[in-house]
């Protein structure tokens, strides 16, 4: 069920767009929904980040993964346990760009002989990198459709991405890798029992959705060719707020763009927001200097005081005096003889 429902949902979305576009709703799927989706995406994304940002970070709670800044002759691990902003930036860079934490597992290999053990976790790091970077490349490649003239990096990217020179049009490496990456991430979720156990429909849905987006895209490039000139016309139109649909476009194109719209609209309400959240995680983006610089908690309640020493002494004054412990107030004069008698009796 957890897998079936999201799968059916994605198929359903594809069918809606496929037949909808053929039923004369081209402008709905080609113009209205994309605009709507991008609006939801931008507004939703910002709202989510603002929602997070509205809550303060009351305490400085970095997870320290190396030696802290301590005595000058002890070598600090300035990246894994940063005490300065530049250290934090480096740490965040490694985390965001290279998925440092996921990579951590590999070290176990060296010590434990059998390679599979932490190998599986290293694979997770690898799959994640494959997926995210190919996705990034694909998004950047698509800039050629939305801009005229296209930015300088697009042809360069295009050249390297297609440098295998297999087939016409040339096969993009990123297309291969993203599909492979998705398949691998998906197979983790069905073949590894513990990952299967924890997976929710919300984990399968984006996988299916992105897989469908990538495969419709590939289909349009290699098999069921579409009129790129007309699509570029529409895309540039969309980007410049003067969208026009020229001619009859392949319904697959509408499926593709509808799925992308779905992804965009779904994004702010889903776990995909980890893209924004990773920058705001208090265990990673704070310097480990809380003993050096006082961190302020806006809701700290100064009225909350400890059980006071005066109350403490009131409760224990007698035994304290008897044990020769210094006291602030001393015993009342009257009772002074009582403990003395006690000791005498003993």
């Amino acid at each position: 069920m957890k897998i079936l429902y999201p799968f059916v949902a994605v198929i359903g979305l594809m069918l809606i767009a496929y037949f909808g576009a053929q039923a004369g709703l081209e402008s709905l799927f080609g113009i209205v929904i994309p605009y709507l989706a991008i609006t939801i995406f931008i507004v939703g994304f910002i709202r989510k980040v603002v929602y997070w940002a509205k809550s303060p970070v009351p305490f400085r709670i970095p997870t320290t993964c190396g030696q802290a800044n301590s005595l000058p002759w002890i070598k600090q691990n300035k990246i894994e346990c940063p005490s300065t902003t530049s250290g934090v930036l480096k740490r965040m860079f490694l985390e965001v760009v290279l998925f440092r934490s996921l990579f951590r597992n590999t070290q176990a290999d060296i010590y434990d002989g059998p390679k599979l053990r932490y190998g599986s976790s290293k694979y997770l790091w690898l799959f994640a990198l494959m997926f995210h970077y190919s996705f990034l490349v694909i998004i950047m490649r698509h800039m050629r459709l939305f801009t005229d003239p296209m930015p300088f990096f697009v042809p360069i990217l295009d050249f390297f991405d297609g440098f295998l020179q297999i087939g016409t049009p040339p096969l993009y490496i990123s297309d291969l890798i993203i599909l492979l990456g998705l398949l691998l991430l998906f197979s983790r979720r069905i073949f590894l029992p513990k990952i299967k156990y924890m997976s929710l429909p919300a984990d399968y849905f984006p996988l299916f959705l992105i897989f469908a987006i990538a495969s419709t895209g590939c289909t349009m490039r290699f098999w069921d060719r579409v009129d790129v000139v007309n699509i570029k016309h529409l895309a540039v139109g969309l980007a410049s707020f003067h969208p026009v649909i020229i001619g009859k476009l392949n319904p697959l194109f509408y499926v593709h763009i509808f799925l992308v719209s779905t992804l965009l609209a779904y994004f702010p309400f889903s776990k995909l927001m980890h893209m924004g959240g990773i920058f705001m995680s208090p265990t990673r983006n704070l310097a480990n200097n809380s003993r050096m610089v006082r961190h302020i908690n806006p809701w700290n309640d100064p009225a909350l005081k400890p059980h006071s020493y005066a109350d403490y002494e009131d409760e224990f004054r007698e035994v304290m005096v008897e044990a020769n412990l210094p006291v602030d107030k001393g015993l009342p004069v009257k009772e002074e003889e009582a403990p003395a008698e006690d000791t005498a009796a003993e």
Binding site: D112, P114, R117
Partner: peptide, 13 residues
């Protein structure tokens, strides 16, 4: 209980 340790060859894990 789950068959989670299938791949865990490491004697420490």
């Amino acid at each position: 209980g789950a068959r989670f340790f299938k791949k865990q060859k490491d004697r420490f894990a």
